[in-house]
Design a binder for these strands. Structure first.
Length: 182
DNA sequence: TGGCCGATATGCT
DNA sequence: GCATATCGGCCAA
């Protein structure tokens, strides 16, 4: 199957975040399925608002990797979206599809279900690096859409204090690989 | 320059 | 369920 081009990310953030759920993501030889995403635009919880300097790239780019640090040590993976305004899709959880042994070695002592069921967890499990920041997504993390659109559920975003009412979290229905509930 | 806060993960009760 | 490590980003002063 052909990976999506950068134009995929040029569209509305909510559409992109939803369509990423169920898609296959590749990092080098490693394959996984995206099972959980969140959308951020110009809402009160978006880094476009809360981190106006580092989050500025949400406003003027699409299809680029946006890596941010949180709580000192953790790093999380986003793709910038929307050619016409600020937006990003946060990748919150993935289902491993290959190299399970490698993931176990990167997060020793964890049950398989907890290898990549959180934004900072998957960053470690996939062996991602901060160097990916600002790189074109199709170049470093090619994404392939599933043959049939999956059933996607909607819920409020996790771990934020502002704009908690917006149902901008998208999850793959029935997946056993999702992150914590709130 | 100081202080506050956070799109988290983990371990303990 | 709750505490807390840990430090970059931001802004007030």
């Amino acid at each position: 199957m052909q990976p999506v081009s950068i134009d995929f990310y040029a569209r509305d953030t909510l559409i992109v975040a939803r369509e990423l759920v169920g898609a296959e993501l590749r990092h080098g030889e490693f394959h996984c399925r995206i099972v959980e995403t969140e959308a951020y635009t110009d809402d009160a919880a978006s880094h476009y608002v809360t981190r106006p300097r580092t989050g500025a790239m949400l406003g003027d780019t699409h299809g680029l990797v946006y890596v941010y640090r949180i709580y000192g040590i953790h790093r999380c993976l986003n793709f910038t979206t929307d050619a016409t305004g600020p937006g990003a899709a946060l990748i919150r959880a993935v289902e491993p599809l290959s190299h399970l042994d490698l993931l176990r070695s990167r997060r020793p002592g964890r049950p398989d279900r907890e290898l990549a069921n959180g934004p900072a967890k998957l960053f470690v499990a996939l062996g991602l690096d901060e160097d990916l920041h600002r790189r074109p997504v199709p170049e470093v993390l090619p994404v392939c859409l599933p043959p049939e659109p999956p059933v996607v559920e909607t819920s409020p975003r996790i771990g934020i204090s502002a704009a908690r009412d917006l149902p901008w979290r998208f999850t793959l229905a029935g997946s056993a690989w999702l992150s914590r509930r709130r």
